[in-house]
Design a protein around this nucleic acid. Structure first.
Lengths: 292, 292
DNA sequence: CGATCAGTTGAAGGGTCTCAACGCGAGTGG
DNA sequence: CCACTCGCGTTGAGACCCTTCAACTGATCG
């Protein structure tokens, strides 16, 4: 689907700060109230249903979020937690220079605002990249909810733990590789997450622009563009604007293993490496060789 | 204190994989058992004491960890959660090439193994950088403990949230700056965390080596060394091996604000920068000018 | 005391940033 | 309807920061 042209999402995924509501997390029209919402959230987070008749007085609404709309603003009072039901979100911070640093992308099943549990205001901003929906839980209700529905507390812990794992994977991605390898790892992570949501792991539509990917990966957006071209020239992927198809997943995974130092300081190397030769970095050579 | 020479911690902070216990988190001699341990942990995490007489059958021990010893190995079954009571830890992953990617450092008050809550085996390894101690809580007891001592569950959530916030700050650090700025931001974060533990925010002893800092920051260790020299030449810090003194915290913070693009896509620049001239990137110029 | 390792510094090369130009699509308003 | 504007994505060219290799110092340890 989505056979529309190049910038189909342009009008909705532009610079945020548009039609955001800011405060008042429950101020949007609730499409659904609490009879089965708890069950939905628990299923969303991968937990088994339990005695969820207890918490009938605690509000939990499904909120619809338009593309470009903000769920949370950096520095504003943090009153709610969100569970992504559908759509895509970006988590970011805005520098005082105006530079937008993307910290993560979130899709179905993930929790938003978990980093605000330990403080009074949101440390990061959240905005939707497309038409999305989230379950809203007020922070002041989290404790009671965890008491009344124990599996909710467990599921919340698991979701937070998962978010931390994702963030650590991102650190690993950012810290020690060349730009094409960064992009390859990013695509693999994305592919895994899409598969976890029942989507195709080989072919998907990027909800974010090149600039946002570049911000996440810590490179210039031109470099992301060049990296896409390089991966395509290597036959790993097929890219047409935001439509991505992974042609050679094994090759991509193998390429994503490239490290910065091809010969590192571990003296007694556990696995001897016979194929790397001196006087050549190896990674760029590998890319060029495969591209030729 | 610690007037010893350059590599005082060498024998204890060397390559890990030494006297690690691996499995069996409770297999070390417990120095203390549960009467007041819960109160200690709650205070450690910044929560107020509560009805902690309920959970007298749940084991919670204070485990001593020697420098270089591992608390968790990547991929081994995850059975426990740890709360740092004293000392310093590094969280890292080892690439199949043997390259050690540091993901975070942890000090007093932080939780270790939170990312393992959502899976069966530890996704990251943890080892001590110095003589340290942690409270050990078995994963299978976390649920019961949260039920019996509600403030424990809240404190655990807060600790996880804090860890996620730290990880996001690290992503921000890694993603978009030059090496000296990276180091400056790293030092500022470290300073803040030291202050949070009651230590001096201006003068402290680095528990980790240049290679480990370099791995965290995603640069070569020589670059870290040069960045230290550059910050010292700018008069920001005074560095003698692992002893660091921050001389000009305001200047350091100001310098840490430097972004990659000195003229970014925000049209109306709020702070005009008069000293940068064309045909020069500006950040290196700034460093050299201050160093001269 | 030789070996080893952490840390520093220098020199050369290359990958990335930055600036620039171009094509393209969408929205706007004449 | 169509020029116009705007933003996204791509590609090229030059400058430069970082990586890599190398050598050196100093300290620890067997």
């Amino acid at each position: 689907m989505q056979t529309q042209g190049r910038h189909a999402m342009t009008n909705s995924s532009q610079n945020s700060t548009k039609c955001s509501t800011g405060g008042g997390a429950l101020s949007c029209p609730p499409l659904k109230t609490h009879p089965s919402s708890f069950a939905d959230v628990l299923q969303l987070l991968g937990a088994e249903g339990a005695d969820l008749s207890a918490a009938s007085q605690i509000p939990m609404v499904l909120r619809r979020v338009h593309g470009g709309e903000s769920l949370a603003h950096e520095g504003t009072p943090a009153d709610a937690l969100f569970f992504v039901c559908a759509g895509t979100f970006k988590i970011f911070r805005t520098n005082e220079d105006g530079y937008e640093q993307v910290l993560a992308f979130a899709i179905r099943g993930e929790v938003l605002g978990f980093d605000a549990l330990c403080m009074d205001s949101y440390p990061t901003a959240v905005s939707a990249l497309e038409e999305s929906s989230v379950y809203v839980v007020l922070k002041r209700d989290v404790f009671a909810l965890s008491q009344l529905i124990p599996s909710f507390g467990v599921a919340l812990q698991r979701a937070g733990s998962m978010t931390l794992t994702r963030s650590r994977e991102l650190v690993e991605l950012l810290a020690a590789v060349a730009s094409e390898v960064k992009l390859a790892r990013f695509l693999i992570q994305l592919s895994r997450r899409m598969a976890g949501c029942g989507q195709s792991p080989r072919r998907f539509h990027l909800r974010m622009g090149r600039r946002e990917i570049a911000s996440l990966l810590g490179v210039a957006h031109e470099t992301v563009s060049r990296a896409f071209s390089a991966l395509a020239a290597m036959g790993m992927v097929d890219v047409s604007d935001r439509e991505v198809e992974i042609l050679d997943l094994d090759g991509l995974k193998n390429f994503a293993r490239s490290t910065r130092r091809h010969l590192n300081e571990s003296s007694e190397s556990r696995l001897p490496r016979p194929m790397v030769q001196r006087s050549d970095t190896g990674r760029r050579t590998m890319a060029r060789a495969l591209a030729a």
